[in-house]
Design a protein around this nucleic acid. Structure first.
Length: 652
RNA sequence: GCCGACGUAGCUCAGCUGGUAGAGCACUUCACUCGUAAUGAAGGGGUCGGGGGUUCGAGUCCCCCCGUCGGCUCCA
């Protein structure tokens, strides 16, 4: 048997050689370090006989193989967790336990009345450590479906039985499933595809992190299981580093930063709705101003539509059927009314209020509309998921021929917007779902138009097959928060449905009525979510133009109060957000507090500055820049604000 | 909405096996009048998330509700 190693060298092995044999043939050190073997891109256990077909490129996976090694031992650790859990809770039903991005989980079903909390972790971890220390081998065994079913029925493991039955049922006709693989480590045997490291001792460091509920098979109609999350590493040091990283990320959580910086707070009197303090309101307004300016330059027309609409409108739009449980419904004078959860029906209504010529299209309506959605309590998450928010929402009415150009325009606008903040976003194209309206031919064209627009701008994207809206495909733009959770910001959706439902028309060049196409788009998404993401992205150090407080004046003693007031007056008159720290404190203290508040500029004023009409400039994180004339300072800072400079002075 | 945990002063948190609340910061006042990351002293401030219950007595134990956090489902 001949193989090719990653460095191009040839390796010849006797027949029936295993991955372990291959590693040993290369070197004794490699044999000791080996975790698994990869043949033609497929990872296998070391103990398995190597396949003889294919190109036979072979690579030994060791602890130094990075992500692949981590994935292996995390999956191993999940098995060890299940091992310990079965010993500590003999009646527990096990389901699945995969490796995930930063660790692993295992889902359990505990007998009624038994619940798990993180207080139970030390005992479970101790039992897990015993199994790791015992250096138990992972032994693979291929058994017939019947034997496997019999085994898990005997062990009263219904989830495993269901998994096997589904494997058989969902197998393609030309490749029926007749056997499954089992992995045994110590006293525990699990249904598992593999691969695994040779033995439990390869798990060098692990930790259980949290317990959470998770629906069996992700289906909210099914039973909720108990999920235990954990992580594992190839050294204790790496584990600790990872945990420290998580700790640091928590300091960037917008829910901590927002109140700290005096931007917003939440209250029990209105769950899921932020109270915006002056500082946060300033940030919010700057963003609205930005989208207004950028939109105006790209042909968007600002409109304002009502907050509350008669249910007739929602019946026309389809929301009454599809979205009612997410709406705040009210009633007066025997009319059923609802707060708007989206702007589109209002914009359609507005479009229909006047006749339109093809010459008017595309018509780009924009509204930073306030929306209310009755989100389930468990889904609320700081500013990233709220019940009351505003979107930079637009509806573009155009002809079918204009679709691709309009989508390209929206994507270019999006790239400009995100570029201004240095945000690293990723794009997803969601295509036709099972339940949909419209002909396949229409969907072909719609999806092609969106894909063509993405391609024309050279934007990489992943396809979410079947994830489109029932009325059309969409492009979603995502970004991750400080803890690695992904959130959708922008969206661009193609819609043939609403124009139909609202009977929207335009008069074409042929003097006949035609149906326009509608594009729904938001770039920042909701201003609330966008601000949350920005806070985390900048660790609370918002760029100068966005900072809740841009300048703070620090008089050295009470004697300088008058000059400080004059400086503040000049700053405020030039449109800068500024204040004076007139507390009876030493400058050192005032500087410290301003630094902690992440204020971009601190102006120290004392006798020297007052005499020369200067200010002592200090930049956040950048130290003392020395004295400068007040006029010069204001001019320079205003220029940077106008440019919406991303970087802070002195930190470039 | 579902599973689990948590909820003490504006903030961060103490409060052992039940015996009618405490610290630091913040705030107010006074002294100091100060040059780039915490001046000192004094003082005010709490329905212990809300409501029931057990008990001679509940921040501590039990039940219900609300909110928050970690997930799941859903979503901008």
């Amino acid at each position: 048997m001949a193989f090719t190693l990653p460095n191009g060298a040839a390796l010849t092995l006797p027949p029936h050689a295993t991955g372990a044999d291959a590693a040993a043939a290369i070197g004794a050190g490699l044999a000791r370090a080996a975790l698994a073997v990869k043949v033609d891109g497929i990872t296998l256990d070391l103990a398995r006989e190597l396949p003889t077909d294919g190109e036979r490129r072979i690579e030994i996976i060791t602890e130094k193989s990075g992500a692949e090694a981590l994935e292996l031992i995390r999956h191993d650790t999940a098995h060890v967790l299940a091992t310990a859990m079965l010993e500590l809770h003999p009646g527990v039903k096990i389901s699945i336990g995969p490796a995930i991005e930063n660790g692993f989980y295992y889902d359990f079903d505990f007998p009624d009345g038994v619940s798990l909390s993180d207080a139970d972790f030390p005992a479970i971890e101790a039992r897990m450590r015993e199994h790791v220390r015992a250096d138990e081998r992972f032994v693979r065994e291929d058994v017939s479906v019947e034997a496997a079913l019999e085994r898990f029925r005997a062990e009263q493991q219904p989830y495993k039985v269901e998994l096997i039955e589904d494997l058989v049922r969902n197998a393609p006709v030309d490749a029926p499933v007749t056997s499954v693989s089992l992995y045994t480590n110590g006293p525990f045997t699990d249904l598992c595809r593999g691969p695994h490291a040779p033995s439990t001792k390869r798990i060098k460091a692990f930790k259980l992190q949290s317990v959470a509920g998770a629906y069996w098979r992700g289906d909210s109609a099914r039973k909720m299981l108990t999920r235990v999350y954990g992580t594992a590493f190839l050294s204790q040091a790496e584990l600790e580093e990872h945990l420290e990283r998580l700790e640091r990320a928590r300091a960037n959580d917008h829910r901590r930063l927002g109140p700290q910086l005096g931007m917003f707070q939440f209250s029990e009197v209105s769950p899921g709705a932020a109270f915006w303090m002056p500082g946060g309101t300033a940030v919010f307004n700057e963003l609205v101003r930005l989208s207004r300016e950028m939109g105006a330059a790209r042909g968007y027309l600002e409109v304002k539509t009502p907050q509350v609409f008669d249910s007739h409108l929602w019946k026309t739009s389809g929301h009454w059927d599809k979205y009612r449980e997410n709406m705040f419904v009210t009633e007066y004078e025997e009319r059923e009314m609802a707060l708007k959860p989206m702007n589109c029906p209002g914009h359609c209504q507005l479009y229909a209020m006047a006749p339109h010529s093809y010459r008017d299209l595309p018509l780009r309506l924009w509204e930073p509309g306030l929306l209310h959605r009755r989100e389930a309590s468990g889904t609320l998450h700081g500013l990233l998921r709220v019940r009351h928010f505003a979107q930079d929402d637009s509806h573009i009415f155009c002809t079918e021929e204009q679709i691709q150009a309009e989508v390209a325009g929206v994507l270019a606008f999006a790239a400009d917007t995100y570029g201004l903040f240095g945000l690293d976003v990723h794009y997803e194209l969601s295509t036709r779902p099972e339940v949909r309206i419209g002909s396949d031919e229409l969907w072909d064209r719609s999806e092609a138009a969106l894909a063509a627009a993405l391609d024309s701008l050279g934007l990489p994207y992943v396809v979410n097959a079947g994830d489109g809206a029932f009325y059309g495909p969409k492009i979603d733009i995502h970004m991750t928060d400080s803890l690695g959770r992904s959130w959708q910001l922008g969206t661009c959706q193609l819609d043939y449905n609403f124009p139909e439902r609202f009977d929207l028309t335009y008069i074409g060049a042929d003097n006949a009525e035609h149906r326009p196409v509608m594009l729904h788009r938001a770039l920042m998404g909701s201003y609330e979510r966008f601000i949350g993401i920005l806070l985390e992205h900048f660790s609370g150090e918002l760029p100068l133009w966005l900072a809740p407080r841009q300048v703070t004046v620090l008089p050295i003693s009470e004697r300088h109060a008058a000059y400080a007031a004059e400086v503040l007056q000049r700053l405020a008159a030039s449109g800068l957000r500024a204040d004076v720290d007139s507390r009876d404190e030493k400058v050192g203290r005032k500087v410290r507090d301003a630094e902690l508040a992440k204020v971009p500029y601190m102006l120290v004023v004392g006798d020297r500055e007052a005499a020369e009409r200067q200010v002592g400039v200090r930049v956040h994180g950048g130290g003392d820049l020395g004295a400068e004339s007040l006029d010069g300072f204001i001019e320079r800072v205003l220029a940077r604000v106008r440019e919406r400079d991303l970087l802070r002075e002195g930190t470039a």
